[in-house]
Design a protein around this nucleic acid. Structure first.
Lengths: 340, 340
DNA sequence: GACGGCCGTGAAGCGCCCGACCATCGCCGA
DNA sequence: TCGGCGATGGTCGGGCGCTTCACGGCCGTC
């Protein structure tokens, strides 16, 4: 089977290659009659533009890039990435634009990937995840003039458009909810402090507690691993003045924390309330179900894709904007705190 | 910033473009001295081949394709896909080959995607997931002569190489394990009966039970959704002659089943044992932890990638082969059945 | 002096797009 | 009546970056 080219269509329709090109691209320069004839022949032959030829000619690569900086074992556990991808795809496929995926080890490798994509003309733009403080990726992308949309921010994205989650306000909602339930001693299992949104949450937590006259909240770090998450919760619960509510930076971490709490003989939510950032099915699979801060991740993916297209086309619509706010979904893991 | 081309290198090195091309591609036709000089200039300029130009010239697209036929909300919940991708990537990035991802609605859309990829020269080959009976994708890929590796089989893959999981033997292991624990009334929550591996498991279950003189196992279907999984388990446990052990086609389904069983007041594993196909972190997050049949998914992805490369290059190494067998990981959800 | 290796150059061409050009026709003013 | 002109509908050909085939000097050898 041979792929038909424009020349084949030209031959069959009895016109020149240019005429075919004009007809296929809705350009002026051919009569309506010729255009229809060309289109008919093209669809009969099943012609599709050769993406490489188009890209070479100086046009679009017809694909965007997504570099995932995650070890293999985590990529699976975390629903975030896949939900984001499916959201991206919903917009991409509507414009028959491809998605190039690359799993990278670290930031350095990610930057190398951007440079390679740029040099090889593989993508028209990229989506950047997990913004960090002084993120070197921003400068590189700006230098390359490679269109990009950052998921994160709003600070530190340079000239790149971004879509930022309202982490401080999400955290505030949680604290107010917990405070209303009578909790005073809060704790926070936090993530990588280099991540912008992680810092935003921690800052908000301290700030709101101070304003409301609550004691300084305990904070410990945990990565996504089982052991680390369990250890973090154990440390918090072993503290002399044990917290009555714990806020986790991830559903995964929270679920592990729940197991640990139950293991240690605590009753949830009677003696301990738990809240997770990032809702997912996981939160509903455990018992009691986890109270969570939910986000429309596929929706955000779609929004990011639209912004990226706007950035690529250089038109309007590529301005930074907030994602829709977190929604607090109270479930069985949080309850009224009764002083004993 | 301008991307350097071969002509730029040629100018700087004082040789013709052809010579540069030979040097960069390790072809004979240039002296060792010239080659070194060209390579030095190339790396100084940061030259990278323009992927579109190469593809146009008739070479490789430098990417493989993966079409995911899953609704958005499932893609996130299921760790399988991401683990597979990270396995694929480990091989791909070693050869600096890209991965093209596309989320599709149904088989028809998937086939359309293959045709488009082929016509647009976007990918050099594809990975096919979830083989079904009389799968139309096989014929299409054969017709297009688009190299492909099927994850599934071994039957029904036509001339396409495949890597097949040993589902019957996995199922047999489970039954023997459960039988050894004293279970006789087994049940099976099964998946889409059009999927080859699902049928293999069901067949093995019936066959082995017959051979061992166990009663005909109950079988119900459930998709990946919460409601469906819960409903399936409820139906089984409400049956007059309740099973003492249930085998689930997915960790997700099994976790939901566990919740339902606990809700219904059954003690796991004292009154009911549960086993899941597909181990994942999910199985260790619940209480009791789920006994599961584990698979090295990233490993299989890597193997599939290697086979696909072999198929693309037309060399040897593209023969169908079994994946490594399932490993049964007994955990807290299975135990001795004591007649009451 | 014919011949074969070795290095290197020139040019064609992959499929597509687009700027330059050209033929035809209708219309207008001289 | 006829030349000039603009609009319309089309053709020609170059070039994007890269590979590769055909060829052409140049040297050493029989």
């Amino acid at each position: 089977m041979k792929r038909p080219t424009i020349a084949d269509i030209a031959g069959r329709a009895g016109v020149s290659r240019s005429a075919v090109s004009f007809a296929l691209n809705d350009q002026p320069g051919v009569s309506e009659e010729t255009r229809q004839r060309v289109l008919a022949v093209a669809s009969e032959l099943g012609w599709r533009p050769h993406s490489a030829a188009r890209a070479l000619r100086g046009g679009r690569a017809g694909a965007i890039g997504l570099a995932l900086q995650r070890p293999a074992r985590l990529l699976g556990a975390e629903p975030f990435t896949m939900e984001l991808i499916s959201g991206l795809e919903s917009e991409l496929s509507a414009r028959s634009c491809g998605l190039n995926l690359q799993v990278v080890e670290d930031t350095e490798a990610e930057i190398a990937t951007y440079r390679r994509w740029w040099a090889e003309h593989r993508v028209d733009g990229v989506i950047v995840l997990n913004l960090r403080d002084d993120d070197p990726r921003v400068g590189v992308l700006e230098d390359l003039h490679l269109p990009a949309v950052v998921i994160g921010g709003p600070a530190g994205t340079g000239t790149l458009p971004s879509i930022w989650s309202q982490d401080a306000s999400g955290m505030t909602d949680v604290i107010e909810y917990l405070a209303a339930l009578g909790h005073r001693r809060l704790a926070h299992v936090s993530g990588d402090p280099n991540m912008r949104h992680i810092v935003d949450r921690a800052d908000a937590l301290r700030e709101v507690c101070r304003l409301r006259g609550l004691p300084e909240p305990l904070t410990v770090r945990a990565d996504y691993s089982d052991e680390d998450s369990a250890q973090a919760t154990r440390r918090l619960l072993a503290a002399p003045d044990r917290p009555t509510a714990i806020i986790y930076h991830t559903d995964l971490t929270a679920v592990t924390g729940l197991e640990v709490a139950l293991e240690m003989g605590l009753s949830v939510p009677d003696e301990l309330s738990l809240v997770a950032f990032n809702d997912s099915r996981l939160c509903r699979l455990v018992n009691p179900k986890l109270t969570a801060l939910a986000h429309d991740i596929p929706g955000r993916g779609a929004q990011a894709a639209r912004m990226l297209f706007a950035a690529i086309e250089g038109g309007p619509g590529a301005d930074s904007q907030p994602a829709e706010p977190y929604r607090l979904l109270p479930r069985g893991s949080t309850g009224v705190y009764r002083t004993r």
